[in-house]
């Protein structure tokens, strides 16, 4: 008697009964099928207890602009839809103060939120004039510093027209070493942090390029992808200005 193939047994598990006669007669195939079914059932049972955190649904709903089903948790806006920003930011600001005041809660935050908080912290650290900061206004020297520390030279805006480089430093972001430089602009001081992570929000198309926007405490953030890295501009300036600043890093868009 020829036995059922593994593929035929898989079809039976899917509900195909064409080989059921053979199973009546063949104990071996019956056992093989029982084993496959037992494994399938055990796997399903194991995953039945894997449940997502309630905050995830809230994050996604808020990002999509859908009505909340749950009581809102203290969180900041992670997905910036410009039309909703004004109303959301006031609520977010109150929550952020709590988060910043209790650093341990950072570890409990959703990853995307924690990432934004970390970016804001890096900016704050850059502004504090600490000893790790490499003060330098010459782009060539900054490039040399990055080459030595990171192995590559991030794209930087050309000084002039009100822009001046202030310096740079190496920081840690989500456990990885990243580079950051500071630009003095007519609107305020901006840190640009170059990370390997990808943005976690819905991007907004502008000037043929996708920009991701976010906010944390007083900081606004805009991110753009360039050469396999994400360039995050962070500062107490408008999203529009940050977008314009990052646009200077990009290759010329086609007209």
């Amino acid at each position: 008697m020829s036995h059922l193939t593994d593929e035929q047994l898989e079809e039976i598990i899917q509900g195909d009964n064409s080989a059921s006669e053979h199973l009546v007669e063949c104990q071996l195939c019956k056992e093989r099928l029982a084993e496959k079914r037992a494994l399938a059932d055990r796997l399903k049972l194991a995953f039945s207890k894997v449940e997502m955190a309630g905050q995830l649904e809230q994050r996604i709903r808020s990002g999509l602009g859908l009505n909340s089903r749950m009581s809102p948790e203290p969180k900041i806006k992670i997905l910036n839809f410009r039309a909703h920003w004004k109303s959301i930011s006031a609520i977010a600001a109150a929550a952020i103060i709590l988060i910043v005041a209790v650093p341990v809660s950072m570890r409990l935050m959703a990853p995307a939120l924690a990432a934004q908080a970390q970016l804001a912290q890096i900016h704050e650290h850059n502004m504090s004039g600490n000893h790790e900061f490499h003060s330098e206004a010459d782009p060539a020297k900054l490039a040399e510093y990055f080459k030595g520390k990171l192995g590559f030279i991030p794209s930087m805006p050309t000084p002039g027209r009100g822009l001046a480089l202030r310096g740079c430093c190496i920081r840690h972001f989500r456990g990885k070493v990243v580079g950051s430089y500071v630009v003095e602009t007519p609107e305020g001081i901006v840190s640009v942090i170059v990370v390997t992570d990808t943005p976690k929000s819905m991007g907004m198309k502008r000037k043929d390029q996708t920009f991701w926007e976010g906010s944390f405490a007083k900081c606004e953030m805009v991110t753009v992808s360039l050469d396999g890295f994400s360039y995050c501009a962070v500062g107490e300036v408008s999203h529009e200005y940050l977008t314009d600043l990052l646009s200077q890093l990009l290759p010329d868009s086609p007209e």
Binding site: F47, V50, M52, A53, L56, R59, I60, G63, L64, L79, A110, P111, A112, K200, S201, M202
Partner: peptide, 20 residues
């Protein structure tokens, strides 16, 4: 997502990316 990533943090990010 959990079956793909094997941990909760990455799974949450992946679900968020997917729904967006």
């Amino acid at each position: 997502a959990y079956a793909l990533c094997g941990n909760s943090d990455n799974a949450q990010d992946l679900v968020q990316d997917t729904f967006l």
